[in-house]
Write a protein that binds this DNA or RNA. Structure first.
Lengths: 179, 179
DNA sequence: GAAATATTGTTGACGCATCAATTATCTCCT
DNA sequence: AGGAGATAATTGATGCGTCAACAATATTTC
């Protein structure tokens, strides 16, 4: 049988002397099928969502996320660290994005008087209008591609499985810097 | 109730006159919960996988994919278009990556005599060694984070649900250029 | 209260993905 | 045969994410 490195390596014929097959639990054929599908989903879905948002709202999905966090909070303004925590982003990525969003007029920054290391981020009127206009087509995309595709039992399975996968990611110690 | 733009907009109070609420099927509370979790998964998983591969194999996951396709084929060499089709990538992305991989010595390119527009891509000995060494830790990561987290019923649900989601993405007409 | 340490946020460099434009070659059609 | 259009692959410009390094300010510790 031919080696299968892509889905995930299957064949063991190539295993050299320095590697014992007991050390690795290779994927079965059906596990490989699922992995290939999942990998395609992980690639295609965010890519399609970005394209939809750029087409319909002239926006990147990261900007939408920031606007959403700002619009949902009860506070009049938030600090970058709060937004970063809410989105589980590292601070550097957020800082770059906030600079671009400020240049576009979607948010405004002013210095925080209580903690002068930080800033206060505020949604501008234009920022609020932007997300209000972008929201309907976005929810439409998510509903049509995700929720309309899922049977109730499948949805339940997603609800129970995804948090477990996320928890196992935590254990891997592979988080980015700022989280 | 406060607006929920992130998970996906929930509130309708902000809906202005130019937009009728009937036009958009907003998400319910429990749908929003799932969407937030899915969104985090879509972000965290590829990011953690990239970090694992960079840490353990000094490689980007895209390079792994290309090496895998080349190593799995029965042909001695492939054309870029074949690799692009297998991975569902656009040709431009692949072209840039192949240039970098050739510079690293992972693959070699020579011109195709039967169709002189194209090239033949071949896995070098170093390229084969690289993927063989990278494979065990990669499969380990996938098994520990995905398969060890899934109950049999959840796995079945993923197997039936993901292809349906992918099919609905196709219908959206949001594919990149080269696909 | 002062020094050590932690935290907040920014910046610049770099690698990668994406898009539009381009070149070279092939195929089809008359 | 010859020209129109399709296809293979590359290139350059641009924007974003990541990382390491840094500056400014808070907090902790003794």
């Amino acid at each position: 049988m031919r080696q299968q490195y892509f889905g995930i390596p299957l064949g063991r014929t190539w295993l050299g002397k320095r590697m014992k097959s007991e050390e690795t639990r290779w994927l079965t054929d059906s596990e490989q099928d699922l992995w290939r599908t999942l990998r395609e989903f992980l690639w295609q879905f965010p890519s399609a969502m970005d394209r939809q948002m750029l087409r319909d709202s002239k926006m990147q999905s990261g900007e939408y996320s920031v606007l959403a966090v700002l619009s949902e909070t009860a506070e009049p303004s938030l600090r970058p660290a709060d937004v970063a925590t809410a989105l589980r982003w590292d601070r550097s990525r957020l800082s770059h994005l906030l600079r671009r969003m400020e240049a576009k007029g979607l948010i405004s920054r002013c210095s925080d008087e209580t903690d002068r290391r930080g800033h206060q981020i505020t949604l501008t009127a234009q920022g609020r209008q932007t997300i209000e206009e972008a929201a309907p087509s976005h929810v439409n995309f998510v509903r049509e591609t995700i929720f309309d595709s899922l049977e109730p039992s499948e949805r339940t399975a997603f609800e129970s499985a995804l948090p477990k996968i996320l928890a196992s990611l935590e254990q891997q110690g592979l988080k980015p810097d700022g989280c």
